[in-house]
Computed example of a mutant assay.
Amino acid sequence: MTSPQLPPASDADLAVLQTQLGRVPRGVVGIAARCVCGNPTVVATSPRLDDGSPFPTFYYLTHPAATAAMSVLEAGHVMKEFQDELAENDDLRAAYLAAHEAYLRDRAAYGEPDEIAGISAGGMPTRVKCLHALAGHSLAAGPGVNPIGDRALARGTWSPERCVCETPGAGG
C-alpha cells in the first residue's frame, strides 16, 4: 500500500536526483520508491512548487533506465493498446478509477491546490496518457494499486528487482 507520509529526501538523495534528472529537483517531499541499491526511483513532489506553480504529478519517475523503458513502450504505441483494453474491460476501468482516487488521497496529504483539484496523473481515471507517471505510481504504491502502471512495468525492459544505476547508491 501507499505510504504518503514519506521521510524527507537526504542530501545524498537530492544529489542522485540531480544527476538522474540533469537539473536541480524541485518540490521534493520524499522518495516514494527506491532501486535495490538505494537510489531514488520515484520522487514525491509537492503539489505546489516553491515558485507557486501547481504540480499535479505527485509521483515522478526519475530512474533513467525506468524512464527509458517507459519511453520505449510509449514509442511502441503500447498506450493505445492499454487505452483500448481500458475501454473494453469494466473491471480494469474500476481498478483504474480506484488508482486515481488513491493517487489523489496520497497527494492531498501534502496539499490540495484548487488549480489541480481532481487531476491526478497519466490520464487517470479515463485515459492512458503517460506511462512514466503510471509506472511511478505503481512503484510508489506497490503492485495491485495501479493496473495500467503495473502492466507497463511488466511489459518494459527495466526491472525494479535489479540495479542498473550508473550513479553510486544513495545509501537509502
Score class of each variant (00 low, 15 high):
residue 79 M to N: 15
residue 77 H to V: 01
residue 91 D to R: 07
residue 142 G to W: 07
residue 93 R to G: 00
residue 84 D to N: 15
residue 34 R to T: 14
residue 45 T to I: 12
residue 125 P to V: 00
residue 139 L to R: 03
residue 7 P to C: 12
residue 10 S to M: 07
residue 154 A to H: 12
residue 61 L to H: 11
residue 26 R to V: 06
residue 140 A to C: 06
residue 151 R to V: 06
residue 129 K to Y: 06
residue 20 Q to T: 03
residue 101 E to A: 11
residue 102 A to T: 14
residue 20 Q to C: 06
residue 67 T to C: 14
residue 162 R to K: 13
residue 18 Q to C: 14
residue 13 D to N: 10
residue 139 L to S: 06
residue 55 F to E: 13
residue 18 Q to H: 13
residue 100 H to I: 02
residue 24 V to Y: 01
residue 160 P to I: 00
residue 3 S to E: 15
residue 19 T to L: 14
residue 161 E to V: 01
residue 44 A to S: 04
residue 29 V to R: 00
residue 93 R to F: 01
residue 97 L to Y: 13
residue 50 D to H: 09
residue 51 D to H: 05
residue 152 A to G: 10
residue 129 K to G: 03
residue 162 R to S: 15
residue 134 L to I: 07
residue 2 T to L: 13
residue 44 A to W: 07
residue 44 A to F: 08
residue 27 G to C: 01
residue 137 H to N: 11
residue 155 R to M: 14
residue 144 G to K: 05
residue 99 A to R: 09
residue 108 A to L: 04
residue 111 G to F: 03
residue 126 T to F: 05
residue 160 P to H: 06
residue 7 P to V: 06
residue 165 C to M: 08
residue 166 E to M: 03
residue 118 G to L: 04
residue 96 Y to L: 00
residue 131 L to F: 04
residue 72 V to W: 12
residue 163 C to E: 07
residue 75 A to V: 09
residue 23 R to I: 06
residue 45 T to K: 11
residue 146 N to K: 02
residue 130 C to L: 08
residue 147 P to I: 00
residue 82 F to P: 15
residue 94 A to S: 14
residue 60 Y to G: 02
residue 139 L to K: 03
residue 50 D to C: 09
residue 29 V to I: 01
residue 160 P to E: 11
residue 7 P to D: 04
residue 144 G to N: 05
residue 21 L to T: 05
residue 130 C to Q: 03
residue 62 T to H: 10
residue 169 G to W: 11
residue 30 G to V: 02
residue 166 E to D: 14
residue 96 Y to N: 00
residue 131 L to Q: 05
residue 46 S to Y: 07
residue 32 A to K: 00
residue 30 G to D: 02
residue 72 V to Y: 12
residue 111 G to E: 09
residue 19 T to K: 14
residue 41 T to I: 12
residue 84 D to E: 10
residue 83 Q to K: 13
residue 90 D to H: 02
residue 48 R to P: 04
residue 22 G to I: 08
residue 105 R to H: 08
residue 46 S to Q: 09
residue 60 Y to L: 05
residue 81 E to M: 03
residue 109 A to S: 13
residue 156 G to N: 07
residue 155 R to A: 15
residue 92 L to N: 03
residue 2 T to I: 09
residue 94 A to M: 07
residue 151 R to D: 10
residue 28 V to N: 07
residue 134 L to G: 10
residue 43 V to W: 08
residue 33 A to L: 09
residue 64 P to K: 04
residue 115 E to M: 03
residue 4 P to S: 04
residue 125 P to W: 00
residue 6 L to V: 12
residue 106 D to S: 10
residue 133 A to L: 05
residue 3 S to A: 13
residue 149 G to L: 07
residue 119 I to V: 07
residue 121 A to W: 01
residue 138 S to V: 00
residue 158 W to G: 12
residue 127 R to Q: 03
residue 139 L to F: 09
residue 42 V to N: 06
residue 60 Y to W: 11
residue 26 R to A: 13
residue 166 E to H: 11
residue 43 V to S: 15
residue 86 L to K: 01
residue 155 R to F: 11
residue 161 E to C: 12
residue 14 L to R: 10
residue 12 A to M: 06
residue 54 P to C: 10
